[in-house]
């Protein structure tokens, strides 16, 4: 029982390792600004505001690559 358990978890470890390496190589992690670098500006409004209108204002000012 214990040997079977050890073997099956060993196979599971191999499979997950291969899967992870394959996926990382093919698609890659979706890293946030904390790792890739960049600038984060936190702004606040007294009124409730949709994120779309802030985005539109940025695009009009020429900051199209900001998100």
């Amino acid at each position: 029982m214990s040997l079977y358990f050890a073997r099956s978890t060993g196979v599971l470890a191999l499979v997950t390792l291969l899967l992870a390496v394959l996926l990382l190589a093919v698609r890659g992690l979706n890293l946030t600004v904390e790792f890739t670098g960049g600038m984060i500006i936190q702004v606040r409004y007294p009124e409730a505001l949709a994120a779309k209108s802030v985005q539109d204002a940025l695009v009009r000012a020429g900051f199209a690559d900001a998100s």
């Binding site: 600004v33 960049g38 600038m39 984060i40 500006i41 936190q42 702004v43 606040r44 409004y45 007294p46 009124e47 409730a48 505001l49 994120a51 802030v54 940025l58 900051f63 690559d65 900001a66 998100s67």
Partner: peptide, 8 residues
Amino acid sequence: RSYFFIIF
């Protein structure tokens, strides 16, 4: 009321 994070 509302907070936003602008990320460059």
